[in-house]
């Protein structure tokens, strides 16, 4: 759980940008929570406040969260370029104004298609902005490029009568 204005420099610190992304990922959010990168597990959900991911257009800011196994980022609002980059790289990012009710360690089930977040721990649920079908299928494919590859392969098959 993080507060407002988490910027891209905190997500992907500039001093490790020249190295491999896997290394960069180890330092993700280090400046605000040194225990974050070593402690996360696959399928975890990151919860943020306002303007999550503001700052530069570096795609690595979203990439490192994916590498760490983060399934979704839920925030009250996002830095715009981060939001686009996250979805394009296959990381679920949902806007949810009510998310501040969540406590660290709560078990969350994010249903981006329906626009609902279920809090199993507190037995509660919150509404969030749903994602349209074409973005969901893009995320499920693993991001924009794999999605395009798939789509093109399918078109090739259909378009070829022989």
């Amino acid at each position: 759980m993080f507060g407002d204005d988490i910027d891209t420099d905190v997500l992907a610190p500039g001093q490790y940008m020249k190295g491999p992304v896997a290394e960069l990922a180890k330092h993700c959010l280090e400046a605000v929570d040194p225990a974050f990168a070593p402690g996360v597990a696959d399928g975890d959900v990151v919860v943020g406040g306002r303007n999550f991911g503001l700052g530069s257009s570096r795609e690595q800011a979203a990439q490192v969260l994916k590498i760490l196994g983060i399934e979704a980022v839920v925030a009250r609002s996002f830095g715009g370029i981060f939001y686009r980059n996250a979805l394009n790289l296959g990381l679920v990012a949902v806007v949810c104004p009510a998310i501040c009710a969540v406590k660290p360690g709560d078990i969350l089930i994010v249903d981006a298609r329906a626009g609902r977040i279920e809090n199993r721990t507190q037995n509660d649920s919150y509404e969030c902005e749903p994602l349209p079908e074409h973005l969901i299928s893009m995320i499920e494919a693993g991001g924009l490029i794999p999605h395009l590859e798939r789509k093109l392969a399918a078109e090739l098959k259909n378009g070829d009568p022989t």
Partner: peptide
């Protein structure tokens, strides 16, 4: 480029996108 907003002076909706998105734009 992030300063692509400049085009807005001409009444266009112009904005900056990352490299991954640009690939998709060029392809589709």
């Amino acid at each position: 480029d992030s300063h692509s907003t400049t085009g807005g002076a001409f009444g266009c909706f112009m904005f900056g996108i990352g490299a991954t998105e640009m690939v998709a734009v060029l392809a589709t």
